[in-house]
């Protein structure tokens, strides 16, 4: 079911949906970027359609609602433990195609990686549904076409494309269809827009020989990378976390367990008891990250983890391109193959 809505009609429809759902969407936060008078686009709850940033890809991914940067899991004192309260009322998350594909990766890690599901993830995941933001043109660093995530045909309640002041929605949910129909100017078949080519093409290697671990292609990153981990924190598919057991300073017998985001690029990630550290150099960390995204995950689950959103390339302060690194990896493997 497709509908065309005026700006006002779309606002009214979202307002009505807002009665049953919390709306979580990319929002332009003025002046909250790294530099003076620079904005950041990141996810937050909105009340009005006008608050949603529909024209620009978000700098940070939607995952912050499913895997919060910092989340208290439970409180403890003496013999008692209490789960932290969580608002599990229904949510609609506005995502682009690449990010909708990322949801599958997050679910894989938190719900279907081994025998047990992650209870805290499941609790919020069940209250979440998605709206698809169409892409009329490729973003600067995205390579979704290479990763085959440029198009999403399912997994969303409705799509939204703004074009010439009109809103085009493809609705897959009966309840939402009633709402959009009530505010629509007309009804017509709508397909969410998607891109068919990017400026960046990435050649993902079919096979990665173990010898690549010792390749010198990683060495330049030891020099260039500053292990800030921004690539991980903006990534829609990075799922690593670490734990903080905190004892309140006023009373050391009371405290909480927190789960916070972690980064395989940042110092401390591979620290182990006894003072060992498996990946000391930034080149080794880059190798781990890149191979995890385009090889190790696939070996375990049959598809690549990376969705090609390009946020890692957007955010890197040292202008390191993950996409180009994958291409270098592919070229190195082919070259080695030719030598044999």
């Amino acid at each position: 079911m497709g509908y065309v809505l005026s700006s006002e009609g779309f606002s009214k429809a979202l307002h009505e949906l807002g009665g049953s759902y919390r709306l979580y969407a990319p929002v332009r936060k003025e002046g909250e970027g790294r530099f003076t008078d620079v904005d950041v686009v990141r996810y937050d709850f909105v009340h009005e359609a006008g608050e949603i940033e529909l024209s620009t890809k978000s700098d940070y991914a939607f995952k912050e609602i499913l895997t919060p940067l910092s989340e208290t899991l439970f409180f403890f004192t003496e013999q008692s433990v209490k789960d932290a309260d969580k608002d599990t009322s229904p949510v609609i998350i506005f995502v682009r195609s690449c990010d909708l594909h990322a949801v599958k990766r997050l679910d894989q890690i938190y719900l279907a990686n081994g025998k047990a599901e992650d209870w805290f993830y499941r609790r919020i995941r069940d209250s979440v549904r998605f709206a698809l933001i169409g892409c009329s043109e490729s973003c600067e660093n995205g390579f979704c076409v290479s990763m085959k995530t440029n198009r999403a045909d399912e997994g969303y309640m409705f799509s939204v494309d703004e074009d010439g002041g009109k809103f085009y929605v493809d609705v897959k949910d009966d309840e939402a269809a009633k709402i959009f129909a009530a505010h629509a100017e007309s009804s017509q078949p709508v397909t969410a827009r998607y891109v068919t080519e990017n400026d960046t093409d990435v050649n993902v290697p079919e096979n990665v020989p173990n010898s690549i671990y010792k390749s010198d292609i990683w060495d330049e990153y030891t020099q260039r990378c500053i292990n800030c981990g921004r690539c991980n924190f903006v990534c829609p598919t990075c799922t690593c976390y670490t734990m903080q057991d905190v004892y309140y300073t006023d009373n050391g017998r009371v405290g909480e367990r927190r789960r916070v985001g972690a980064s395989c690029m940042v110092d401390g990630y591979t620290n182990v008891a006894g003072g060992g550290q498996y990946r000391k150099t930034n080149g080794e960390r880059m190798r781990f990250k890149v191979l995890h995204k385009v090889w190790d995950f696939r070996r375990r689950f049959g598809y690549d983890m990376c969705v090609g959103c390009g946020r890692c390339d957007d955010v890197c302060p040292e202008y390191i391109s993950f996409a180009n690194c994958v291409n270098k990896l592919d070229a190195a493997i082919k070259e080695a193959g030719n030598d044999e």
Partner: peptide, 17 residues
Amino acid sequence: CGVCVAYCPTRAWTRSK
């Protein structure tokens, strides 16, 4: 000086309006 803001990878630190 804003160095904390510039280096924060998650926008936990931001600049005052």
